[in-house]
Nucleic acid binder design. Structure first.
Length: 483
DNA sequence: TGGGGTTAT
DNA sequence: ATAACCC
């Protein structure tokens, strides 16, 4: 990377990145603000400070594993490694390795279409997510060693806020090391790096940390993946997919408009889903430029102020959402889709099966769920597959038995779930369900609260009298008395 | 479309 | 309890 001659950043920048830089409060935006250069180094960069407490310029990495389920399967059975491999759930190939992709297999392809395209395709069943989930958390834990601020997105993606770590490493850098700083991996658009630009330097350090993360994932877990480094989550995520398997890319601020405009449709912006995309299309908005230019007022009227403002910022590549540490899961669920479930007995058998797996998981976790939910999907001819659910608190005496393999917790839980079932489904009328799911949520840490302590009276499950009817919940549970 | 997850209303 | 979003 050749340092450019004195003069620094040019003035012909797009408005949006310039604004982000202004918000960042980075000193040294104009060349005149910098101190004199010393011979043999670039010490001025240590004087370019991001004021503490400001909503500073961040360094975010998005880590995205390559065809995650297929990788896990190839690790489990190395004989699959050089064969085209698909992971099957029901009649779908939900993901596949790159051998299979070369031969035309796509994600979420019908098994029949996939076999037709690629008769040599090897299929493994991936309906049991246990090993994927376990490997997924190993990845998150590995990333948490770099910085505790890790946000999971699904099983195979993580965001990490590297801002602090980059700051520490910059402080430790000697002037000569700074001058020799290079990027790890690709630079989006092949943009030239300017080592006199603090934002460039910080992102380069981010790219090196990203490379260390990917190396650690490979050495310790045998997994490959992509990484994207940028100043916010949106941009990090978009840029991580630019070079695709097992590569990484850093986005410098001057190229953020190019990246966002490289999208062909607004639906490709993470955060704009199926519904919002349809509503935007109805307004004549189809590409990113349309959304950028559209009247904010009208957009707010159509989508509500919250969604409107958020997605319009996204269209400029702006995303102030923090990397929120995921921590342990908020819920555990097991589901199974079925061709047809039309009797209470069938339903009960399925529910028992789902529940048995869930109880194992809850036991492993250590925390205790205080709410249980039953979810169904009814058959309906080509209507949108919406789900219905009923939930209720788990009675305290059942919660207590949850970690202990001793007592039979199945029986009372099945009783509760079947009451929820009959509350949703009129079993005296014909019915046709295509999905059953059981979810444990409202997880609480083990009850260390002792009688007579403040905790005791603040723990709703322990001080039973305070719980009846006084408190107003946003979500109203179905109580057992309602049956 | 599967078998998961999250947050907002 | 549902609806939107994510993978």
């Amino acid at each position: 990377v050749e340092p450019e001659p004195e003069g620094g950043r040019d003035e012909e920048e797009d408005a949006a990145p310039a604004m982000e830089r202004a918000e960042a409060g980075v000193a040294g935006g104009s060349p005149g603000a910098r101190g004199p250069e010393e011979p043999g180094g670039l010490p001025w960069i240590h004087d370019q400070v991001v004021p503490a407490g400001s909503s500073s310029s961040r360094v975010i990495v998005h880590v995205d594993l390559d065809c995650f389920y297929a990788q896990v399967e190839m690790i489990s059975n190395p004989e699959l490694k050089d064969k085209p491999l698909g992971v099957q759930q029901k009649y779908l190939v939900v993901t596949c390795n790159y051998e299979a992709r070369k031969l035309g297999v796509k994600k979420l392809m019908n098994v029949r279409d996939a076999k037709e395209k690629c008769p040599q395709l090897v299929l493994v069943n991936g309906e049991d997510l246990t090993r994927y989930r376990e490997m997924s958390y190993k990845v998150t834990e590995l990333l948490e060693e770099f910085s505790p601020v890790v946000e999971r997105l699904g099983f195979d993606e993580n965001f990490v806020d590297l801002t602090e770590l980059v700051g520490k490493r910059l402080q430790q850098l000697q002037s000569d090391e700074l001058a020799a700083l290079t990027v790890s991996g690709h630079v989006y658009n092949n943009q030239a790096v300017n080592l006199r630009d603090l934002l460039h330097v910080r992102l380069l350090v981010g790219s090196q940390i990203a490379a260390e993360m990917r190396e650690a994932m490979y050495v310790q877990l045998g997994l490959t993946g992509c990484a994207g480094v940028a100043s916010n989550k949106l941009l990090a995520k978009l840029v991580s997919g630019v070079f695709k398997p097992n590569q990484q890319t850093v986005l410098l601020p001057e190229s953020s408009q190019d990246l966002i405009h490289s999208l062909n449709h607004i639906k490709e912006i993470p955060g704009i889903g199926y519904k919002t995309a349809k509503r935007l299309e109805a307004l004549g908005i189809s590409n990113v430029r349309d959304l950028q230019a559209f009247s904010s007022k009208i957009l707010e009227k159509e989508l509500g102020i919250s969604v409107a403002q958020r997605i319009q910022k996204l269209s400029f590549g702006e995303d102030h959402s923090p990397v929120t540490p995921s921590g342990p899961p908020q819920s555990f669920s097991e589901e199974d889709s079925l061709k047809k479930c039309s009797s209470e007995i069938e339903a009960k058998n399925k529910i028992e099966e789902l529940l048995a797996s869930l109880l194992n998981r809850v036991c492993q976790d250590g925390r205790k769920p205080h709410t249980v939910r039953l979810i169904i999907r009814r058959y309906s001819s080509e209507k949108h597959c919406s789900r219905e659910s009923r939930q209720c608190p788990i009675p305290p005496h059942v919660i207590q038995k949850l970690g202990t393999g001793n007592y039979d917790v199945m029986t009372p839980m099945v009783d509760i779930l079947m009451k929820l079932f009959r509350n949703m489904v009129n079993v005296k009328m014909p019915f046709h369900l295509t999905l059953l799911s059981v979810c444990f949520c409202n997880l609480k840490a083990l009850n260390t609260a002792k009688k007579g302590t403040i905790d005791y009276y603040l723990t709703p499950s322990l001080s039973t009298t305070s719980c009846s009817g006084k408190r107003s919940f946003k979500t109203k549970d179905t109580h057992m008395e309602d049956f």
